[in-house]
Design a protein around this nucleic acid. Structure first.
Lengths: 262, 262
DNA sequence: GATCGCCGATAACTCAGGTTATCGTCACCC
DNA sequence: GGGTGACGATAACCTGAGTTATCGGCGATC
């Protein structure tokens, strides 16, 4: 088991120092990588759900198709994210998932999550934290959709992506790659594609956002955050390291004995 | 430990048969009941978060205050629900919580959740399921807010409440108590209070919904569900009993020995 | 290098829902 | 029993965003 740079482990390490045993458990989630093409549908609403999925490379999104032919994008997944956690309690998919980009994903069965619950309190707590953070993103998007103007919605989304990408080093100096089309943005923000275009034009005018093809530049990120009334609280998932460290310490004695080679 | 009818245990039992030990663990969550009055704020955004909370009686809601003075209600909690699970990863509250009704709530420290992770895989799985279901509610509300008309939003909300209440026996024959004011409904649905009123008038006209004070009657629930394009999938959390039973069976040997009196 | 198809920009027109304001009703309380 | 205040209904008016349509640019395919 070469520790060939794993997105998941990097992601989990954000939350907590991991034992070797924990890392081994996580590695099992990435056993069967599969290449996927942009636009490829990983699964659809109402299909039987027996697996989760991790993204190793590329972007993905989950979506719901509505009765009137429109569609709502719910979440955008980046490398290191786990897809499908939200559906833990359900035997059917509640949302479809498709790739934005070419990429690599790894499927693993539901069962594996129970193994983790049973074998590592630390990982269980981290999984709960991740799920909790995803819910925070969702909540923020909800507020955004319910209460803000088109300008604020787009500003908020762009700034959120900027922060998320910055946290993983994928944004430098206000510039980042945003592989979504304007139609996908519209489906995310509950707007029409036309109005997304209008709003980008306005932002260009005001020199808040420059966009060419899939490259976005924010000349003044803070100004954008202000437009969006952005409160970064929900992204700085302080993650309460103390809390988790205590916990890790508390459980190490019992699990340490069974640990794999150090 | 008298098994004086506990909402939480009833709630959890929905998902899975519980051992006596599991019940004992859950009972600890309801150790310190407190009477609360309608309108009382349990906590506010950005306060330090060190506790979760269960609702034993009454309704509650979580909300976010926006920059422009408006506010968005995120979730409505009924007796048996756990409040604050969403915030597991955070040290600050992401949303305020207030009572709709007079009621009884029980606070318990974060730490207690870790005890559960450590001591019961069954309860851990159920907690994950509950969190997953809450997220499904949130997602459905998001779609609702982003993509549907005022009529659909209100119809959807009313029908959802009807189903949730029906599941706990609190709705009979299309009639139930709905203690929210039109302003609270507006804050939930991302509408103005005026427009909620208009929409109720329209529903009265069409004989879809009758509302007097806090009593709501749905003469034809199915018709309402149709207006809302309601797909009950996300509420019939099949909850995959098989899955959990297998799991419970798998872990019983190790924990059974330490079980409390049967 | 001509054709096709996708993506994005822009303009003209429409409409769902917000805003403001007024009024009626009910509950509560000296 | 009259004052007060929260809640809800209704009307008139306004506006942000949807809809439809047209056009230009760019990449892929032959």
């Amino acid at each position: 088991m070469t520790n060939h740079d794993s997105c998941i482990i990097r992601h989990f390490s954000h939350y907590c120092r991991l034992s070797e045993q924990d890392k081994a458990l996580l590695h099992e989630l990435e056993e069967s990588p599969r290449d996927v093409r942009a636009g490829e549908v990983l699964w659809q609403e109402n299909e039987q759900a027996t697996e989760f999925c991790t993204v190793s490379r590329g972007w993905a999104y989950s979506y719901r198709n509505l009765g009137d032919g429109s569609r709502q994008i719910l979440e955008v997944f980046l490398p290191g994210d786990i897809i499908g956690l939200r559906e833990f309690a359900f035997s059917q998919r509640l949302a479809g998932v498709a790739m934005i980009d070419d990429g690599v994903v790894c499927h693993f069965p539901h069962r594996r999550l129970l193994d983790i619950f049973r074998q590592s309190t630390t990982l269980t707590a981290v999984l709960f934290s991740i799920s909790s953070r995803q819910q925070a993103l969702l909540t923020e998007r909800l507020v955004n959709l319910a209460r803000r103007t088109a300008h604020q919605k787009l500003a908020h989304f762009l700034y959120e992506m900027y922060v998320r990408l910055d946290q993983t080093g994928a944004a430098t100096d206000g510039r980042f790659r945003l592989p979504l089309s304007q139609e996908q943005l519209a489906d995310t923000l509950g707007l029409s594609a036309v109005h997304v275009s209008r709003t980008f034009s306005a932002f260009r005018e005001e020199e808040l956002v420059l966009r060419e093809r899939h490259k976005v530049t924010l000349p003044d990120p803070e100004a954008l955050a202000n437009v969006a009334e952005f409160d970064a609280c929900y992204l700085n998932d302080s993650v309460r390291p103390i809390f988790l460290e205590e916990d890790a310490a508390a459980m190490r004695p019992s699990n340490g004995a069974a640990a794999l080679k150090t």
